[in-house]
Design a protein around this nucleic acid. Structure first.
Lengths: 126, 126
DNA sequence: TACAATAATAGTAATCATTACTAGATTTTA
DNA sequence: TAAAATCTAGTAATGATTACTATTATTGTA
């Protein structure tokens, strides 16, 4: 992989961003600094970085793919009212791989848990 | 909701089908009996039925939305080799709602668990 | 049974997220 | 510094899904 300024900025945009942005959100953010950056470049780099395990892609939240700089195993909660995405510690389903293998013989390599409901803020406003 | 033959056939196609088909797969299946059925009709009905809780829609498996006649809480495993979707009992993450609420205060209304890996058949052939 | 009101359908066009393509620009290697 | 390799911007294409519309089917009622 060859260096490019665009890729570096894409990674920097994700790092320190806890909002789990989509490709389009990263693009809009980057345009402020790099007005000529192409949406295709953002999509291509995010996809590649995820394939190499440098970042993590999240599906099933809504229609779109979201990206996460945090590649540690953890799960996600999306609020049905404000659509904000929260991280959830993997301790809530600690032994899922061994449990599934024990019960079914299916060999789990990857696990996504997607939780939906009301976040604390939106609970209050109810 | 008014009766229609098309909707009845869509439900019947899902019932007794354990393969978690996409809208397009249901359409292809139905065309054998109802050659003039429209793809849009299949999409519209599956979406409505899922909104009413009569069937369940599954996202995050691959790019497409899959449908499941089984609305009982349970989870899914997709084989990365043969792409077959398997049901997994909810007992593997029994108390996830209360655990998440206890740890984070997030009020979980719905939980999807998507597991990826190798099914038993594909393990053997390895 | 007939009739109007309502909702569904087939078929096609439109939309949205994402990927593919291409000529030209950058980075790397020797 | 020049050739080889990879990247980018910009645009076109793709694929899943939804919207639209004229027509048809279902349903409640006289």
């Amino acid at each position: 992989m060859k260096y490019s300024k665009q890729r570096e900025m894409i990674i920097r945009t994700l790092d320190g961003n806890t909002s789990h942005p989509t490709a389009d959100a990263v693009y809009e953010e980057l345009r402020k600094e790099l007005p000529n950056i192409s949406l295709g470049t953002v999509y291509r780099n995010l996809k590649q970085l995820a394939e190499q395990g440098e970042i993590r892609s999240l599906n099933g939240l809504d229609g779109k793919t979201h990206y996460d700089y945090n590649v540690e195993q953890h799960y996600h909660f999306i609020c049905r009212k404000c659509n904000k995405v929260y991280d959830v510690s993997k301790t809530v389903a600690q032994n899922i791989k061994t449990e599934v293998f024990g019960q079914t013989g299916l060999e789990v390599e990857d696990c996504d848990i997607i939780l939906k409901g009301l976040c604390r803020n939106c609970q209050k406003q109810q």
